[in-house]
């Protein structure tokens, strides 16, 4: 079984959406449960979208490297991009207890991504953001 997913994703919103479709196929092939695959796809979608929307200060095309490995009970995700340095771990959490009148949607994507994985490691090296996620198969 092919339990490795590798993709070079362009920094465009449609490219992320296409990648999500491929990731769904990969997850189903690897018999991930609907809930587990949803969480994995949502976390990757939110993190990639964040890079595409906020990571680049120029209009050039960039490639984001995405690798996902399923190894027994573990799912390992690597995301490498050459955007501005951004550590999702240091992103402030939204105040989820605020009433509707004052609630702002900022930071929700990263917050959701963190909630759907078991750990996040981040380093910036050789000019690139290097994100490693671990999620237990659930």
């Amino acid at each position: 079984m092919n339990n490795n997913f590798i993709s070079e994703v362009k920094n465009s919103i449609p490219a992320i959406a296409d990648c999500r479709v491929e990731l769904l196929k990969f997850g189903r092939k690897n018999k991930l449960s609907k809930e587990c695959l949803f969480g994995l796809v949502l976390a990757v979608d939110e993190l990639l979208m964040n890079i595409v929307l906020y990571g680049y200060k120029d209009d050039r095309e960039h490639s984001i490297f995405l690798e996902i490995k399923i190894d027994g009970e573990n799912i390992y995700v690597q995301i490498v991009d050459d955007g501005i340095p951004f550590n999702p771990q240091s992103a402030p959490s939204p105040d989820i207890n605020t009433p509707v009148e004052t609630r702002t949607p900022g930071g929700l994507g990263i917050f959701l991504a963190k909630n759907y994985v078991n750990s996040i490691d981040y380093v910036f090296s050789e000019g690139k953001n290097r994100l490693k996620l671990h999620k237990f198969v659930c």
Binding site: F38, L42, P105, L108, L112
Partner: peptide
């Protein structure tokens, strides 16, 4: 499927 972008519209 819903991502934060969808939640944002409902909140708005």
């Amino acid at each position: 499927y819903i991502s934060s972008a969808g939640l944002r519209v409902l909140l708005l």
